[in-house]
Design a protein around this nucleic acid. Structure first.
Length: 119
RNA sequence: UAAGUAGAAUAAAUGAUCGCGGCUGCACAGACGAAAGGGUGCAGGUGAGGAAAGUCCGGGCUUCACAGGGCAGGAUGCCGGAUAACGUCCGGUGGAGGCGACUCCAAGGCCAGUGCAACAGAAAAGAAACCGCAGAACUGCCGCAGGCAGUACUGUAAGGGUGGAAUGGCAGUGUAAGAGACUACCGCUGGGCUGGUAACAGAACAGGCUGUGUAAACCCCAUCCGAAGCAAGACCAAGUAGAAAGCAAUAGAUUUGCCCGAUCUGCUUUCAGGUAGGUCGCUUGAAAUUGCCGGUAACGGUAAUUCUAGAUAGAUGAUCAUUCACGACAUAACCCGGCUUAUCGUUCUGCUUAGUUU
């Protein structure tokens, strides 16, 4: 990913959970915090409650793919954490993608005219 | 053809575009970092499973411990073989089930000791009489002989009933009634014989033979087992903190260059240590494929060929098109050998039983 890297350390995750703002919809919960750099950092989390290893890996790939394909419309300088909810275990790419964009819009972290154009 | 039984293979396919982790080659930068190490782009090639799962056994590997022996604890438990090893596998023996192919079995020892056996039943262990059967005695009634009823006593394990289990089974002889008391057959026990490496099997002989079950009850016997795990462990190594030597003591460092003032006790080198970070361990192996040889088989030997993920918050996804049976279970994390459990389906092979046709 050109403008982004992944969020790795547990302490970074805890930081975002504590200080960041969150919105949620049917499939996802999204936490956002400014990180004072010019790059975005994306973290993906899926607990064992969501499903087995196959389900959790698939969820992470779908979120990463959705983010990658829309990377250029996101604002930069953000730590973003996406958490799976239980209902996300059984849905496909289209649902994850629209859920991600919906939450991004609520956070006002994407360039609106791109979002409007797609809808 | 149908039903069954044993085993094996496979785990949607093809193409296009975008994207990800190793590897190899080339190019670029040498702008990141104290160092160790790393970055960017392009091309090529490569990238999860039959169970990768559960983490239930066994082994390699690593570190620690260890003269030798014993106790405790755990595991295994018919016999022989295979193997690095096993609780696994193969071939047998015995038992159970099935018409059969075939399947299943924690299958050592209650003549070392201790314990338990609820309910029912007379009785479930140092020892048995509830009913029944039989005997002689006494009492009563009827009476020619004798019979019937009751009472306590004695004998009796045939029969009834209880139970998961009741003192070998069944038939006969025998007897007052009975009883291995005696007899035949079966079973059991014993020491030999024959066959087999053995478990065990077989035929005969001898003994009238013994009151049971339970060891997934304690236990006994035999065999095996040191502990922890790749977040093991090895190496490099900021910072912090430690030691030694040297320099400085009207000194040095910081405070923008100088002065004053203020604050602090330092600076350099070496050694030890090993946190953050990095590298290795990390995939060439009890390896895979094919052929031949040995073995009933598990498996072993041998020759040729091949190199087949190696991430470190953790790489396989998305979109489009076509086809079909419309896609189950489930994602490597040091590596092997097993076991167990989950699973949409498809295909093939051997065998069995029943039916039909020739």
């Amino acid at each position: 990913m050109v403008f982004s890297e992944s969020l790795k350390k547990n302490s970074d995750f805890q930081n975002v959970y504590r200080k960041g703002k969150s919105y949620a919809n049917k499939y996802l919960v999204m936490y956002v915090l400014e990180n004072n750099t010019n790059r975005n950092r994306l973290g993906i989390s899926a607990s064992k409650k969501v499903g087995n290893s196959v389900v959790r890996h698939r969820f992470a790939r779908l979120v990463r793919e959705s983010y990658r394909l829309h990377e250029n419309i996101f604002n930069s300088g953000l730590d973003i954490v996406v958490v799976a909810r239980k209902s996300a275990a059984f849905v496909g790419y289209a649902e994850i993608e629209s859920a991600l964009l919906h939450l991004s819009k609520l956070h006002h972290i994407i360039k609106i005219y791109f979002y409007d154009e797609e809808n």
